[in-house]
């Protein structure tokens, strides 16, 4: 019958209004207006005991004056900013710079004078990543043969000036390292989750650990 579809449509919108599971998963970033139920969950108590104990906070939270930090839950695979770079693993081969489609990684190396038996290792003088032009495709991470470069997990790198977006070698060295598990199956196997705040040591992130000094000398001797 003509007109029935209109009424059915009204029924569907009402259904979406009423059923809570139909609502969007809304995450109120960076802080959420907490309900007493949220607060009780955070404080590990039952809602009613919490309300009885903290009446003032409860009233405040009903009016919407209590904020809790909230973030969109991400998968550990998320390709984020803040590259995690391990100078202990990096050999300065510049594969990442070569594979970058935009050419935004700049590497300058020099000889260091150590490990002269093995043909000397490189000293990294410059390692700049221009995040302002980066598109986070992750080709550099894919290219790294020694698992020294990893995608990060954050997304809050907004700056007032473009020049501040360039991450230089000191920043990379001193940064807290929360590598994404993207293209790093070994991190997935370890159960590494950067979103919940796991940091990773340089020994952990590689496909295989870099041989220690003793190992090297032993192997050298055996050879």
């Amino acid at each position: 019958m003509y007109g029935l579809g209109l009424i059915k449509g009204l029924g569907i919108t009402m259904k979406n209004l009423v059923i809570p599971s139909r609502q969007f998963n809304v995450y109120q970033y960076p802080n959420k207006r907490a309900t007493p139920w949220d607060l009780a969950k955070i404080n590990n108590s039952k809602p009613f005991t919490y309300i009885a104990k903290n009446p003032l906070t409860t009233i405040k939270s009903f009016v919407g004056l209590v904020n809790v930090e909230e973030k969109l839950p991400q998968h550990p695979n998320f390709r984020g900013e803040e590259f995690a770079w391990y100078d202990n693993r990096c050999t300065g081969c510049a594969s990442c710079a070569k594979y970058c489609p935009l050419g935004i990684i700049k590497i300058v190396t020099g000889t260091s004078g150590v490990n002269s038996q093995e043909g000397q290792s490189y000293d990294l003088e410059v390692f700049d990543i221009d995040i302002g032009r980066c598109m986070f495709c992750g080709l550099c991470v894919e290219a790294c043969p020694y698992d020294a470069l990893h995608m990060g997990s954050g997304f809050e790198e907004a700056q007032y000036q473009r020049s501040n977006l360039v991450i230089d070698i000191n920043k990379l060295k001193s940064a807290e390292k929360k590598p994404s598990t993207w293209f790093r199956p070994q991190l997935v196997n370890q159960g590494h989750d950067p979103i919940s705040g796991d940091t990773a040591d340089w020994r952990k992130v590689g496909r295989h650990e870099k041989p220690s000094q003793e190992d090297q000398s032993e192997r050298w001797a055996k050879r």
């Binding site: 919108t13 209004l17 969007f24 809304v26 009016v63 919407g64 004056l65």
Partner: peptide
């Protein structure tokens, strides 16, 4: 907003 399974304004003041 509720019909559209969203939240609607809730930032300024109590309940927005």
């Amino acid at each position: 907003a509720r019909f559209q399974v969203r939240r609607g304004p809730n930032r300024n003041g109590p309940f927005g």
